[in-house]
Amino acid sequence: MDASKSRPAPAGGESTVARAGVADFLVRRSRFRPAEALPWIAAIAAFFIFPSQMVLGGQTLIMILFALSLDLILGYAGIVTLGHAAFFGLGAYGASLLITDLGWSEPVSGLLAGALIAAIAGFLSGWLLLRYRGLAFLVLTLSVTIMLQQLGNLFRDFTGGYDGIPGVNVAPLFGRFDYDIYGHTYYLYCLGVLLIVFYCVRRIVYSPFGQALVGIRENIGRMNALGSPVHWRLVVVYTISAAVAGIAGALFAQTNAFVTLGVFDFDQSAAVLIMLILGGAGWLYGGFIGAALYMVLQNELAKASPEFWQFGIGLLLIGVVLFVRRGTLGRVLNVSRLLQARTQP
């Protein structure tokens, strides 16, 4: 962005030229770079190399999607929340109740139902809460999520309480592909959903709207002064983020064939935040690296030492912060440069 400052602002008559230049810049910037295929190739390769680990693989893809939703608001709009599990949980319950209460078990519409419910909640809570920032916002989102969980516990007949709702059995995908114990179908299903959602999110991020969000993140005062509708832009991105988290939650319920109030746990909000920071926020691929690393490492450590695996995770987190400094593991691996479209025209 600094580059534009060094150039003299075009005079009034040239504004259309300048606008065309900006449009051109945005289009060029959003082009896919070859290296961006790497994560997807890795995901497909994992399917063939570790065929017996695909249940974990599916859970990892879901966490990547969840982290991606958080990246939208944390990485691009600078909003730190401790209540993102609320949208994940609402999506999970939306998809589950569609099956168990309404008897509609087609999987893709389940995802849409989860996204819709989470989006509505995101819109309402965002409209109310996004006036606040910092510690207040952190504690507000945290408290609202806990209250939501307690409310679910109070209406146990409806939600199943912490014992949950068993028998969330989705119909075969597209009426043809059934699910297997090895989780192969689920893995491909999750990967497909992730790819589609990722494409949409990428479009949003590189649109003028996404640019405005970065502006809000970098200097909210100036964006206000420019007359940018800051609050509404934040509400919109928060709603989109909630919808994506809802899709992740819906996938979670469908692949586990089960949902409990545990999906609203504080741990859930904290874990996704850790994964995203681990991989680095604000470049879309942070969740890929963070979630994959965290999930696989946790699984392996817990296998080696069921009691003390947290020690290893803790060591990793501290090590990353101290020695990579920016806390962005992706950057030290130097892949971000390859994956991130250039920010300068």
Partner: peptide, 23 residues
């Protein structure tokens, strides 16, 4: 073969049980 049951949300148990069965 001991595995951590994890938080009581069911998902972790499902993952480790699948691994116990298949691997």
């Amino acid at each position: 073969i001991k595995r951590d049951e994890g938080p009581p949300s069911g998902a972790n148990a499902r993952t480790v049980v699948t691994e116990l069965i298949t691997n």
